[in-house]
């Protein structure tokens, strides 16, 4: 008995800490707007970037980002947690973007964001401009415009795959869950989209 009392306390079974994201989601589902603010802060950059790369227009992307978070808040009660909040949110953003682009009759006017100053120090980009580009006078801003114009020539689903994989670095499986298709479809779309982009940008890739 005494030995039992003197024995060092048994460590409690390790409780798996609930992921903060899940906690925030539950609090937001209960109407806690502060928790939802935190979720917005956590995902706003990725959601905005996806929508920006899809539209090549800052104003459209900003509007769609707000619409995405508004819709997500309204639908939050129906979120059961079958997928991660991140995937669920992305799915809303993807649908918003595709619907928006289908309604936009003509090719959208470009409203590109400024390039980060670090781009000028990216060795790959510097090499691309100075060595591989036949037109030596080309600068990063021009390359950016050509790149975005080429992206806009892709269909919505192909642009989305390039955005999610090649720009944002999501794995194929995650993209499949977001876009509601299998991994094989993601890979084939990605391959086709790259072939298309390569053809559109052939002058800058020699």
């Amino acid at each position: 008995m005494l030995a039992a009392l003197n024995a060092p306390p048994q460590p409690r079974p390790p409780t798996v800490p609930e992921p903060p994201e899940r906690t925030l989601v539950k609090r937001a589902q209960g109407g806690d707007l502060t928790a939802y603010d935190e979720l917005v802060r956590r995902f706003q950059e990725r959601i905005y970037a996806t929508l920006y790369h899809m539209t090549a227009n800052h104003e459209d992307a900003a509007d769609l980002t707000q619409e995405t978070f508004l819709k997500a808040y309204r639908a939050l009660a129906g979120f059961k947690g079958d997928s991660s909040f991140f995937t669920w949110l992305y799915r809303i953003a993807v649908n918003k973007a595709i619907n928006f682009l289908k309604q936009r009759r003509h090719r959208g006017r470009l409203s590109l964001n400024d390039l980060d100053l670090n781009a000028e120090h990216d060795p790959d980009l510097v090499a691309l401009i100075s060595d591989r580009t036949p037109r030596r006078e080309v600068n990063l801003a021009e390359l950016q415009e050509k790149m975005n114009a080429a992206m806009l020539k892709l269909s919505e689903v192909h642009r989305m795959v390039v955005t999610l994989h090649d720009i944002q670095g999501l794995p194929h499986e995650e993209i499949g869950r977001i876009m509601g298709c299998n991994v094989g479809t993601v890979r084939s779309r990605l391959f086709y989209a790259r072939q298309q982009l390569q053809a559109y940008l052939s002058d800058y890739l020699k």
Binding site: Y52, H58, A62, N113, L115, D116, D124, A127, N148, Q198
Partner: peptide, 16 residues
């Protein structure tokens, strides 16, 4: 590979 390096340029685009 060259195309992917060019696509990487888009990661440097930043909003205001």
């Amino acid at each position: 590979q060259a195309l992917l390096k060019l696509i990487a340029l888009k990661r440097y685009e930043q909003p205001p």
